[in-house]
């Protein structure tokens, strides 16, 4: 009986599968168009353009590997890579640590959880806006709010944004300020940890610190990994804040020259489109490499329960 129903089901499935191909294609039509015309097509085109000299007005001229050999001697590019790596490697761990710490504090039955969560989450909605970048310029200016605060503590301030040593720090602060969205993800992850694990641990006499190290942290590693991958990819693409804070220059002294900002300057400031395409592909490779390393390293520290 079961065999026949299964067979009948199979047959039905086989005939509908063909019909579904057409239906599925219709449902996916906008997506397919977007994929090929807006995404994959331009991606391929930019790969080709990266081997050319192209300024939008004259037709692209094949230049072989010239764009890539130019990269080797391009000091502003090296500078922008350094700035971007510093930004990613400092701001992402700082942001995630803060997010994790506050998520853990909030998860332990704090009254008014919803209120605190909202307050901490709000900056991550505002942080990407031009308005907040404008605010940052004022807060960290020589006569800005931050120096007023330091003045109360008796510390001499400085022009945080106008000095090359500290300008990048203000942008890192801004990224850390948006820790709310990874925090919400951590909170959701903490909810998934069954209470019986803690009950068992405390029955065995484990202290709360011990419980954190042996129960919470291992079970949370998949979420930490997820946040890490996501935030690194995201941080590599930061643009707006550096653009506004430096007035589009990446200054002072190229200290806030994010990679994407340099790419914008080459491509849309100088209309050096071939070189900009090559830069874009280097960015893709760098992000891809970081993500691959992340996945490889995850074998050693991410704990999957199943």
């Amino acid at each position: 009986m079961s065999a026949t129903t299964e067979l009948r089901h199979l047959g039905k499935h086989g005939s509908t599968a063909k019909r579904q191909n057409k239906t599925a294609f219709l449902f996916l039509l906008p997506w397919f168009l977007g994929l090929f015309v807006i995404t994959l097509g331009p991606m391929l085109a930019s790969l080709i353009l990266s081997f050319t000299d192209y300024n939008l007005l004259q037709p692209a001229e094949f230049s072989g590997l010239e764009n890539f050999s130019r990269m080797l001697g391009d000091e502003r590019l090296h500078r922008s890579l350094g700035v971007t790596f510093t930004y990613v490697l400092v701001s992402v761990p700082a942001q995630l640590s803060l997010a994790l710490a506050l998520a853990i504090v909030l998860d332990r039955g704090v009254r008014g959880l919803a209120f605190y969560r909202s307050m901490f989450y709000l900056p991550s909605l505002l942080g990407a806006s031009v308005a907040i970048a404008v605010l940052w310029r004022m807060v960290f200016g020589a006569d800005g709010l931050f120096n007023d605060g330091l003045g109360l503590l008796g510390i001499e301030g400085r022009g945080w944004i106008s000095e090359p040593e500290t300008a990048l720090g203000t942008l890192i602060t801004l990224n850390v300020w948006t820790f709310g969205s990874p925090m919400v993800i951590f909170l959701a992850g903490l909810r998934q940890i069954p209470a019986m694990y803690y009950e068992a641990a405390s029955a065995d006499g484990a202290s709360r610190w011990r419980q954190f190290l042996s129960v919470t942290l291992p079970l949370l590693t998949p979420i930490i990994f997820f946040n890490l991958v996501l935030q690194i990819i995201h941080a590599f693409q930061s643009f707006t804040q550096a653009f506004i804070v430096s007035g589009g220059t990446g200054g002072p002294a190229d200290s806030t020259l994010f990679y994407t900002l340099y790419l914008y300057q080459r491509g849309f400031g100088n209309f050096d489109m071939g070189y900009a395409s090559a830069l874009a592909w280097l960015l893709l490779l760098v992000i891809g490499a970081f993500t691959a390393i992340n996945f490889w390293a995850s074998k050693y520290w991410v704990f999957y329960n199943d």
């Binding site: 995404t39 990819i233 849309f268 992000i287």
Partner: peptide
Amino acid sequence: MLPIHVIIVPQY
């Protein structure tokens, strides 16, 4: 995961 920068030039 694709950065918009990789496609922005030809898209433009």
